[in-house]
Design a protein around this nucleic acid. Structure first.
Lengths: 154, 154
DNA sequence: TTCAGTGCAAAGCGTTTGCAGGGTG
DNA sequence: CACCCTGCAAACGCTTTGCACTGAA
């Protein structure tokens, strides 16, 4: 896995640096993290790593196919390791819970679009809506605006 | 439709202003527009309207159920009128084309999640991937990065 | 006449970029 | 010892916010 990093970097004439190892490890450990969360996590272990390095590295790691991202909120994107099985994200706009589903969930969608020659990026998919709990108690999650300006998923 | 605006505003003790009419009309006419595009369009017709008014108004219009938004790119969100039939957006990351599909497309997905008590917001859904044309000619769309930093859909 | 709505300007957040110095291969 | 990578700081794009004024009801 980290060896994977080394070899994949080499293949493209890129270099293995402590920062890149740390950032990849952070994404793997956090499982779902924004660039900023990655930064915080990395800084907790090693001393100084710069925000721009995190952005640049996440881009590289994504090109290498070691991490992926989705948009689970209106703010920062969320990165996760490709070591995890590919999954579809289902997000409740009310309580902001995120559940992961097997790609089977969207097999019919993938098939239907496939007939048009369109190939769906399943891992990137985020489905928004309202979860069971929140539908039940409409008084839940105090202070979260329905239409939501800046902040959580919209 | 604009009468709709007047009445819906009144119901909530809000006021009907020229800006609100203009902005709603702009969204309807542009069919799919970012806040900035709305601003430009409105300014073309009427004189000065402020950007912050556009943001505040789009929020109000969405609360009133007159417009909706999706995220078709990493940059600004896209607004459309609810007068249009609800539709699912399918976006090619390569050439950035956007196609609208009938909600039927995701009926199985909606049904599956429905069993868990989750209610999908179909109109908000954006499916990313690669369209037939782009899959065919992998040399297409010069200068567009695959992983794409800032810019189009990611 | 009241209070919602607007314009303006400044701030905020997440992200990108130019550059010079540092470290990997 | 090339050249990739990093840190730093400034800039950027989009959005939000505070405030005083304006105008809809």
């Amino acid at each position: 896995m980290s060896d994977d990093l080394a070899s994949r970097l080499r293949e493209k004439g890129l270099r293995l640096t402590p920062q890149r190892e740390l950032i990849l490890r952070a994404v793997e450990e956090l499982r779902h993290a924004t660039p900023d969360e990655v930064l915080v996590h990395v800084r907790a272990q090693a001393s100084s790593v710069n925000a721009s390095t995190v952005y640049r590295t996440l881009e590289v790691l994504e090109e290498l196919g070691l991490v992926r991202h989705t948009h689970l909120s209106d703010r920062a994107p969320t990165y996760h390791s490709t070591l995890e099985h590919e999954h579809v994200h289902v997000v409740c706009r009310r309580c902001h819970s995120v559940r992961s589903y097997d790609p089977d969930l969207v097999a019919p969608l993938v098939a239907a679009l496939g007939e048009d020659g369109f190939s769906v990026d399943v891992g990137h998919l985020a489905v928004f809506g309202t979860c069971a709990d929140c539908a039940a108690s409409s008084s839940r999650s105090p202070g979260i605006r329905e239409t939501g300006r800046r902040g959580q998923p919209t």
